[in-house]
Design a protein around this nucleic acid. Structure first.
Lengths: 239, 239
DNA sequence: TTCGTCACACGAACGGCGTTCGTGATGGAG
DNA sequence: CTCCATCACGAACGCCGTTCGTGTGACGAA
C-alpha cells in the first residue's frame, strides 16, 4: 500500500551528508559548544537538538535526562585538569595548585560550576581527580580523616568560587561591567548611615578591593593554613 | 450601558472576606509557606498566585520579577539571625557562632541557600548581619583587609554548605534516605579498582563518615584557624 | 534475494514556567 | 457625578523537560 516517493520529495543524497549520526559524543560536543558560548542556562535539550538538526526527543536515546547530561559535562571537564605528582615537602603548594586548576577548568566553561554544586561526582575523570588530591594530602602527612574531609571542602571551595566567578563574568558581559558593578556597590556602602553600619562604611573600600583571583587566593590560604595547623597539632599529640 | 449586576451574581459580602488585599508582605508570606513546605523549586510565580487565589500577573504590581522576590526572601531570612555582641578574647568562637547561625537559618528554609549563591546581599537585614560579622572580626584584632575578605569567604562557606545540606535533606525526603545514599556511595568506592584508586578505596570509610554538622565544623575550624594564623603573622610582622 | 525484526529517530503533544499586554474594576479627588 | 490613576487579572507568547506512538533504515536469517 505504500506508494513510491515522488521524485521531487526525495531527499538529497541518501548517504547522510554532513549530519553525523547521533551519539553521546556528538551530543556532548554540541553541549560544550553552547556552554562555552552562552553559559549553562543556554544548554537545554531543545537547543542541543537544534544544534544537531534534530528534535529534542532524539536525545533521550543517548542520555537519560538533563541531569545526567550535566553530570557528563562535568566529568568531561574534570578530564581536562592537569594533575601533578604528590610531593611530601611541597604538599601545600601542590594542594593549592590542584584547587586552582579545578577552578580554572570550571571557569573556562563559563558557569559550569553551578552543575557541580550539590552533586557527588562519581564519573571516572572526577574520581581520578579526587584520587590525585587525596594522594597529595596524604603525602604531606595530613591525617587520614582530615584528608577525606579536606578533599570535600577544598573542592567545594573551588566549585563555589568558580560558579560565582563564571556567573559574574557571564552576566556582566565581560570584565569591565563586572568591575563597574562592584564599584557601584562600594559607593552604596559608603553612603550607608554611619551610626548603624560603621564597619561597612569604614571598610567599604577594602570590601570591594581585589579581583576574583586575589580573593580566591585569600580563601585558599585560609584553608591550607588551617589544614597545616591541624596537621601540626596531630603530629604533636600523636608523637 | 452597564446593566446592574444580577443579585445571584453579586459577590458575597463586599468587605473582602478572607482574601487579604495583595501586598508585598502577603506575597512574601505565601512564598515562605511554599518554600518551607516544598523547597525553592516550588516557589514559582504561578504557585504563589494560586496560594493567594489570583493569577500570576497580579504579583508583578508588587514585585519586579522572580529574582527580586528571591532577594526579598533572602533578606527576610537574614532578619531571623540571632546576632551576638563582639568579644575581643572570644572572637574565634563568636565568628564560628555567626557562621553556624547563618547556616542554621538558611537550612531552616530548605534549599533557600541556593538563592544566596552568586548574589551580593544588599538588603537591610543582610547588611546588619554583615556589619555584625565585621565587628566581630575587627574586635578580635584581625587585620582590616582580612576582615573584609573573610566576611565574604565565611559567608560563602555557610551558604554553600547550607545549599548542599538543604538539598540533600529535601530530595532524599528525610535524613534516612540521605544516609542510605551516602552509604551506597561508600560501597561503590570500596569496589573501585585498587590499582587506579588506592587512596579512594582505602579512605572510602572516612570519606563517607560524619553527618553534615561534623563536616561543617571541620571546614569552619579550617577557616578560623587560617584566619588566626594570619592575624598572628600580621601582629608579629607589624609589631 | 526477500522478509522480519529491532533499535533508533523524531513529530507532536502535555504540563509547567516567567513575563507582558490590554482590559476592566475600584475608589478617591475635583 | 465625573474623571482618572491605580491595581487586579485573563489571556497569551515563547520558552522549558519529558513522553508517546509512529515511522524508518539497517541487518541477520531464511
Amino acid at each position: 500500500m505504500t506508494l513510491p516517493v515522488p521524485p521531487w520529495e526525495q531527499r538529497a543524497p541518501k548517504r547522510r551528508p554532513a549530519k553525523l549520526p547521533l551519539s553521546r559524543e556528538a551530543i556532548l560536543a554540541a553541549a560544550f559548544r553552547i556552554l562555552d558560548a552562552e553559559g549553562l542556562d543556554a544548554v537545554t535539550m531543545r537547543r542541543i537538538a537544534d544544534e544537531l538538526d534534530t528534535g529534542p526527543a532524539s536525545l533521550y536515546a543517548h542520555v537519560a535526562n538533563k541531569d545526567e547530561l550535566y553530570a557528563l559535562l562535568l566529568d568531561q571537564a574534570a578530564g581536562e585538569m592537569r594533575l601533578s605528582e604528590p610531593s611530601a615537602e611541597h604538599w601545600q603548594d601542590r594542594a593549592k595548585e590542584f584547587i586552582r586548576e579545578l577552578e580554572r577548568v570550571l571557569v573556562s566553561h563559563k558557569d559550569l560550576g553551578r552543575a557541580a554544586l550539590a552533586r557527588i561526582p562519581t564519573g571516572p575523570n572526577s574520581l581520578a581527580a579526587s584520587e590525585a588530591l587525596l594522594a597529595l594530602l596524604r603525602a604531606g602527612g595530613v591525617p587520614d580523616q582530615d584528608c577525606a574531609w579536606a578533599a570535600d571542602i577544598l573542592s567545594l571551595y573551588a566549585v563555589a568560587h568558580a560558579y560565582e566567578n563564571g556567573l559574574h563574568l557571564l552576566q556582566a558581559g565581560g570584565e569591565e561591567a563586572g568591575i563597574a558593578y562592584v564599584a557601584a556597590i562600594g559607593q552604596y556602602f559608603r553612603q550607608l548611615p554611619t551610626d548603624r553600619f560603621p564597619n561597612i562604611v569604614e571598610l567599604a573600600g577594602l570590601l570591594t578591593t581585589g579581583d576574583g583571583d586575589v580573593r580566591f587566593e585569600f580563601g585558599l590560604d585560609l584553608l591550607i593554613r588551617g589544614l597545616a595547623s591541624r596537621a601540626a597539632d596531630a603530629k604533636r599529640d600523636h608523637g
